[in-house]
Design a protein around this nucleic acid. Structure first.
Lengths: 244, 244
DNA sequence: GCACAACCTGAATCGTCTTTCATGTTGAGC
DNA sequence: GCTCAACATGAAAGACGATTCAGGTTGTGC
């Protein structure tokens, strides 16, 4: 398939490995701390106000430092936005893979469930991810693509593996991976981010997708991925061998 | 299946039925024309530049009218953005339902395919829809929700209908509808909007999702929706009666 | 062909944001 | 405890965009 992780670890696309000032000098511990403060502040401000309304002043105020300080570490709004996206992407993928790996012994399905759960939980705890990604379309299209592609790549690998072991029906893993991405994204938006249920009951708080929604979603996905069963191309009616 | 319009005509939610100037006077034919020009221009500018970078000057230039004219029809950037979203939403739903209805006789699956095709084609022809919706998160959250909810509601009705006729497996239609929405949205983004394939080949032009991707997606969806087959709750194995 | 409401205009005002810079502070290494 | 990068600061310059307004144009009804 496609969408290999470009460079599994080198995260900044064409960029430097070690954070530097805009002058190119390497940061000391103090500098690193300030830079971190600015990034966190930016995440918060972008998430609350949105890219258009976010201003450098607001970010530096939130970070509790002087206006000029900002330009010691970042070239401008666009650049810090990029960094924030990369940062969030790294963290959400970490959360997902950690959760999935923890359940790896329990089988593909359990592992898949765990990954999705982690995704929603992260979304609930960091609404910034969502709100920020949605703006990246213009603020930083490259970061947007990288973000999605990296997550999708993780899914695709899992799907291929499942296909090799016969647990997943054979379909182009790339397309399927994007479909899963889309499902997770929209369900997260609808049930994690939008506070009120359609029926008026504001629920929030739980910080996660309601169980019933989660289960339906997983049923939908499992049905799509389950091997055999469909007639169409006259495939054998192989029964699911994994039981359950 | 799928895609019924909610309130076929009354689109503006709590708003006025007839366009007026910002002073409240009713528009004449000339006024209507100018307003339309501004809306079209705004759609283009928002899609190309994004909300933050779009300015009233740019919009009026694109529309070929004076700066002050803008304020005769809209209160500001935010308001015209709203109108653009509503307008696009109306048009995409129209495109989808028309396509789905045209194939209604050919059965649920054909109708569903037609609806999706129409969605992608519309996306290809109006990238503005996408790019604009993604920004609505901040520019106009209400418009965003309305947009998605309306489309999803159409899907949900189709799904319920399919369930009643035994063509669709019983799962909460709302959740399933959102899943379909998510799939369509992300696949559209990946294959319609992003110009180049991962493998470098720039393909554009066709103005639609590649057949192979479309087919895989539909297979995925059909497998998820198909009645029976899954062991889980031992449902009946009703075969599809509409033929292919 | 007159009157008047609707429509149009862009220079000018006002506010806000980005970015620079001259100057001051900190702290690690010696 | 001295020194020198590195770090920090916020006033000020400069740019740009939103919105207003005083005055001009259009076209429809009579």
């Amino acid at each position: 398939m496609a969408i290999e992780p470009l460079h599994p670890d080198k995260d900044t696309p064409g960029g430097e490995e070690v954070p530097t000032t805009t002058k190119g000098t390497v940061l000391t511990a103090r500098g690193l701390r300030t830079r971190r403060r600015l990034l966190d502040a930016a995440e918060k401000v972008f998430a609350e106000l949105g890219y258009p309304a976010a201003s450098i002043v607001k970010i530096t105020e939130e970070a509790g430092c002087g206006l000029g300080t900002f330009y010691l570490y970042f070239e401008g709004k666009q650049e810090i936005f990029n960094e924030v996206v990369m940062d969030l992407n790294r963290r959400v993928r970490r959360a997902m893979t950690d959760a999935a790996l923890a359940e790896a012994d329990a089988g593909r399905i359990a592992s898949e469930r765990a990954g999705f759960r982690a995704f929603f939980r992260f979304t609930a705890e960091h609404p910034a991810l969502y709100r920020i990604i949605r703006q990246a379309e213009f603020a930083s299209p490259d970061a947007l693509r990288l973000h999605y592609s990296r997550i999708v790549d993780g899914y695709a690998q899992g799907i291929e593996q499942g296909q090799r072991s016969g647990e997943v029906h054979r379909m182009d893993p790339e397309v399927v991976a994007w479909a899963l991405m889309g499902i997770g994204e929209i369900i997260g938006m609808r049930w994690v981010l939008w506070p009120q249920d359609q029926d008026g009951a504001t629920r929030e708080g739980t910080g996660d997708v309601p169980d019933h929604v989660f289960d339906t979603m997983m049923e939908f996905i499992e049905r799509a991925l389950a091997p055999g069963t469909m007639d169409r191309e006259g495939t054998d009616h192989v029964r699911d061998t994994t039981g359950r």
